[in-house]
């Protein structure tokens, strides 16, 4: 699987810090960050997200392994 990056966003404004590894970023974006309740349409919460992340990532790693 080729991973397309959000190049458009980064081109518009390069992040000032060093890029965060995807696994670290997803740990944070799916595991922490402010979770609001109230007037909201969609809000991800719960540990199931960590599972989502792991499933998606591991499946990809495995696919790449199978191909090589």
């Amino acid at each position: 699987m080729t991973i397309s990056s959000a190049a458009t966003v980064e081109r518009a404004s390069p992040p000032p810090g060093p890029p965060i590894a995807l696994v670290d970023l997803l740990d944070r974006l799916l595991g922490t960050g402010v979770v609001l309740s109230g007037d909201i349409l969609i809000s991800l919460s719960g540990v199931d997200l960590v599972e989502v992340r792991l499933r998606a990532l591991i499946r990809t790693v495995r696919d790449e392994g199978d191909r090589s």
Partner: peptide, 11 residues
Amino acid sequence: TAPMRLATVFR
């Protein structure tokens, strides 16, 4: 800045 959880979407 306080980052939100991914996919916090309002109407």
